[in-house]
Each structure stands twice: as structure tokens, then as C-alpha cells.
Design a protein around this nucleic acid. Structure first.
Lengths: 342, 342
DNA sequence: TTGTACGCGTTATCAT
DNA sequence: ATGATAACGCGTACAA
């Protein structure tokens, strides 16, 4: 147990060491590794074998410097205030990382609120990354504005009208529209809507889906049961309270955190789901599985959106023509919370 | 709106550009920036001003290569299976990132299961990072074993007997011990214990805290109401079912995900908390706030553990003497779930 | 105080 | 097919 066997780490061997040991030049070694440029098959094998046996690995910084590529990408995460928001962004992150790893890229995380571009500037100015993923998209997005001036490749998760922007998103619009249609087809008469901040494009799309779902069913939008820009729990429960007085038989929640609050509020008031009020959510999270009543909701594959975003970004970095718009599908999960109660 | 104003990005200016423009040498510029080496105050100011006005930023790869430092650290995250596990690791991550940013370091995320060291090898071999944070610590930890052979600085979040290891942890042992004491002081007679995999050191420490809490109160350990290595929800609820037959009046859950299952199981069986059974958890998460009954639990500042881990790591990287053991405090939150019911 | 020269480890260009 | 040689951008010992 006293055998000292560390310090093999002392010095990583370089391409020159390999060259010297094999009696060839450094450039030959480089060619053997990269596969670029003409090289004899025999020497190629010799180099590759030596490299393998003596565990040579190229130095990332040197490679970066020479190629002007970092093999890093950054993912911009919002400062998370609420527990319910975390799963989305972090699952995205893991999806992006999965794809990055496979492509020998590394993922560098950057947390910032919706206004502070300082951390991005550092990345860009110091050339620490080859591209960026924006996990959230605002209507007037300072990150987008900034990145556009830099030439740094980036993709945003979300929806935008800007034709220059490369985005990846779930089909929030289509999903909500279909969900609303299904609600009416189950005999529901009046669907109220509770939504959060309209400065986020995802919320706009869901709201539009709701509106068109109504239209599809030949219903008019009743502004007395439509709430947007609800930012606090208190506002949500207050809105829910108002809705209770209107003879509405279903509340559609724009997000799971709103749904969370609604469910708690209704329980507190002794309003039974689905008997006295039906409830659905435009976004599923595992949080919703924790209620005594299972909740009808749209389900998006969050990991997949992270993967796709990373794939699109990598193709941009590699100079390929990337699709400007990627729209991912959804599932509608019909559960107890909207069940007909005779 | 047709004004084209990008492509200021075309070329980042270098230290040489600055030198030439100012009629000094590149090394003078370098000195002005780093502050190292003697340099005239006047020229220093001249350089700094020029740099500021013409927005020069050093190239990270070049700096890395020259200094043999990457200014990156990696954080190793487990593959997350369950929602309840996510908050801990991700909050840690944000804490670490906060400290990293302040010190001009970047945080690079690496996800892997408990056995695959490949992603770490890549980091080490290619010299992409200056150090690593292990967010989870196993009893026989392959990551630890590997990293020890490399000379790569690292800290682990968790507890270890290995005197060489640098760890940062919450005082799980002390917290659980105190919690158990408080339970007895509230008139509880028998405290059962439901725990998960004992290959994780955190779970061992909590179990030890439980045992010593019993001893403090002069109680014997009753193995018929102690369960460890519960890995599935089914096992948890089955164990809870057994416990119900033993006249136990309190269940102590090793973690919030176990508590989650216990609470649901009891609700399903119509067992009222705290009237018929009291419940406490060795770890708080916001998930617990979602129950109709608030749950007594230990609360740890997860963000802070991430911060501390990063601080310790950075001091190691900078060659300072780092504390081998950092133990962070806890709060005991007494809530409804253990309230005396006359 | 400042400039020169070289090294960091790799890739790419140009000869041979 | 292979080998010099320069370049990538910055830091630093040494010289001046």
C-alpha cells in the first residue's frame, strides 16, 4: 500500500514527444491524428499505435488557439426563483449536454437574469465559446440584441417573428389549440384562461392557441374569464376566485406553476375537481403528478428540445445551413381533472 | 433599418495591435494588463485607456496555453432519474457558478452515472479544466479513485473517512441526531427510520445521526422499524405498511423523496398526519411545501454548499492550503407533521 | 522602465 | 509522403 504511483500526471506528453520517439516530424503526427493531408498508411498506423500505448491526448488550449475554435458552447440559464421552473431549464441543459458530449463539445453554464448581458459579453469578448443557447426568449430580448451585434452563432429556445433568428420550440400554439378543442368536445361549456407574463413569447403562443381553440369551437373570447400577466401566486388565486363567480366550468392554466396555485386554491375553497370545476394545464411537469387528482395537460419532451437546440447550434458552428425554425411535437394527456362527471 | 452594423466582430484586436498603435512593445501591454512586473505608471495608464476605448479583450485560449491554466472548472452531475433529486444538484451548481463567475472562472457541466469515468477522462486528458467538483460521493467512489491518479485538484460534496480527500458537506449527522432528540422531547415514543441506498455516504451519516439520537434519549435501536437501502417507491410504501403494524408513532424519512412516498401512502391508507402518525424528513425540499400538512424537516442551504465547494476548489487551484473538511450548518424546521395532538 | 526573444502545443502552408 | 517553418495570442525570463 506504500507504492507511490501517481505523478504519471507530472507532464502530459506532447505531439513533439511522439514525433521524436518515432523519428518523424510533429506535422506528421498531427496529420496522423487529424486524418487530414496525405500520409502513408503505414506511418499513420505507427503513430496511432504509439499514441494509444503512450496515452497522448492533444492539449485543448493549443488546439483552440491554432484552430480558432474552442469546442465549447454556452447555455444561458435564467436565475431560478421558483422550484417549478427548474425542471424545464435543467432538463433542457442535460439534453444539450448529451449532444455536446457526443460531438466532443463541452457545455458551459451561464446564469443570468433577464437583463444582465455582462456574463455573455465575457464569453464573447474572451472567445471562450463557439456558440450559445438561449433557454428563454423574451419579446424584446436584450440577449438577442446583443448577440446579433457580435456574430456569435446562437439559437434560442422559444418563438420569434424575427426571420433572422434561429429558434427551436415546442408547438405551444398547436398544442393549446388542440387541447381547448378537446375540452369542448368533452362537453365543457366555458373555458377560462389564466396566464403569466406576456413578455415571454411562449406565453403569447399559448394564449393564441387558446384563442384559436375557442374560434374553432365557434366560441367568443370572454374577457371576463381571461387573465394574463399574472405574476404572483396571490394574483393567480385572486383571479381564480373571480372566475368561480362566473359559472365557468373549466380553468385552463398557462403553466404548471399557475396550475399548482389554482389546484391549491380550489382545494382550500372546497371546490372539487373535476366535479365542480375542471382544470387543465398547458404544460406538464412532474409536480402535477403529486396531486390527489391527476391533471389534464400538454406534455412536451423537454430533454429533446435541449438536444435539438444543440444540434442546430452545432450545425451553425460548422457552417452548415441550419433550419431557422424547428418545431417539436406534443402529447395531450387527458386525465381525471377534466373528466365528465355526469 | 437597413444600416449594417455588425462585423465589428470580424477581428478581435490583439495585444500586438495595441502595442503597435501605442508605439510600445507587446510585453509592455501584457504587463499593463496583468499588473505584474515593473512598468511606468504613465504608460500603464496609456495602455489601459487605449484598451478600454478600443475594447481589447485577451484571448482565452492563448492565455490558457501560455499560463497552463484554463480558468475552467467542471462540475460532475449525476444522471437525474427523479424530479425530487434535481433541486439539490442544480442548486449546488448555481452556487458553484456564482463563485466561479466572480473569480473569472467558468463552470463546465458534465453529466454521468455513478460508474462511467469516460467524460472525466476527456476533461483531464485534454486539459480542459483546472479542477473538478464532485456533487455526489459514494463509499467506493470510482471518480475519486480515478482523480487521485491524475493530480487534478477536486473537492467532493459529501462525507468521507479518507483523510486525503477534500470534502464539503452539510452536517447531516449532527442534524439528524438533533432532530431525533427533538422528536422524543415532543413526547414521541417510537421513531421508525426509512432510508435509501447505503452506498452513498450522506445516507450513512444520516443513519448514524438517527442511531445516536436514539442513544442520547436512552432508547435501543429496534431493527423491526429500521429500513435502509430502499430504492423504489414500492419498497418504501411496503416498509411504511409494515411499520403501521408496530405501534410506532413517528416515521423519520432519510430524504424528501422517501418522505414524499410515505405521505402519499399514508394518505391513501387514510392514516392522518400528525394525529395517527407523525412524520419528519432529514432533508427539506420545496416539494414538501406542497402537502396539505407541512412537514417537519432539516433544512440545509444547498446553494451555499455549492458556493463553498467552489471556493475551496479555487483555493486548491491557487495552491493555497485548503481545509480538508468543511461542515455547513442546518436548520430544524418544526412543522405540523410532528405536532402533539393531545 | 521597457524591449527582445522564446515558449506554450497545435495546425497549416509550403517546400522537398 | 514527409519535414521545416510560421502562425495562433499571450506571458515571461532575460537583456538593455
Amino acid at each position: 500500500m506504500d507504492i507511490i504511483e501517481k505523478d504519471q500526471s507530472k507532464e502530459n506528453i506532447t505531439i513533439h514527444d511522439v514525433a521524436r520517439a518515432l523519428g518523424v516530424s510533429a506535422s506528421t503526427v498531427s496529420r496522423a491524428i487529424s486524418g487530414k493531408g496525405r500520409i502513408g498508411e503505414e506511418t499513420r498506423q505507427r503513430v496511432l499505435q504509439y499514441i494509444d500505448e503512450n496515452s497522448f491526448y492533444p492539449n485543448a488550449s493549443a488546439r483552440s488557439l491554432a484552430k480558432s475554435k474552442t469546442y465549447n458552447i454556452a447555455i444561458i440559464m435564467p436565475e431560478v426563483k421558483d422550484l417549478v421552473d427548474m425542471p424545464f431549464f435543467h432538463t433542457c441543459m442535460h439534453g444539450a449536454e448529451e449532444v455536446a458530449q457526443v460531438n466532443d463539445y463541452d457545455l458551459l453554464i451561464v446564469t443570468t437574469d433577464g437583463t444582465n448581458i455582462k456574463p455573455l459579453e465575457r464569453m464573447v469578448n474572451n472567445q471562450k465559446v463557439d456558440g450559445m443557447i438561449l433557454t428563454r426568449l423574451y419579446r424584446n430580448d436584450v440577449f438577442v440584441d446583443y448577440l446579433k451585434t457580435t456574430g456569435m452563432p446562437f439559437v434560442a429556445i422559444g418563438n420569434s417573428d424575427d426571420p433572422e433568428l434561429v429558434t427551436v420550440d415546442h408547438d405551444n400554439y398547436g398544442g393549446c389549440r388542440e387541447l381547448v378543442g378537446l375540452l369542448f368536445s368533452k362537453g365543457i361549456k366555458k373555458v377560462a384562461y389564466l396566464g403569466g407574463g406576456m413578455e415571454q413569447t411562449v406565453n403569447i403562443k399559448r394564449y393564441e392557441g387558446y384563442c384559436n381553440g375557442l374560434k374553432d369551437a365557434g366560441k367568443m373570447i370572454d374577457n371576463s374569464i381571461v387573465y394574463t400577466d399574472l405574476t404572483s401566486k396571490l394574483q393567480v388565486s385572486k383571479a381564480a376566485g373571480e372566475i368561480l363567480k362566473t359559472g365557468t366550468d373549466c380553468i385552463l392554466c398557462q403553466d404548471d406553476y399557475i396550475c399548482d396555485e389554482v389546484v391549491h386554491y380550489l382545494a382550500e375553497k372546497g371546490v372539487e375537481i373535476p366535479k365542480q370545476m375542471k382544470v387543465a394545464s398547458c404544460h406538464h411537469s412532474k409536480l402535477l403528478d403529486n396531486y390527489p387528482v391527476t391533471i389534464t395537460s400538454l406534455k412536451f419532451d423537454t430533454m429533446d428540445i435541449g438536444r435539438k437546440a444543440c444540434q442546430v447550434l452545432l450545425s451553425m458552428i460548422n457552417g452548415e445551413e441550419a433550419e431557422k425554425r424547428t418545431l417539436l411535437g406534443y402529447e395531450v394527456n387527458l386525465k381525471e381533472s377534466t373528466q365528465r362527471t355526469r
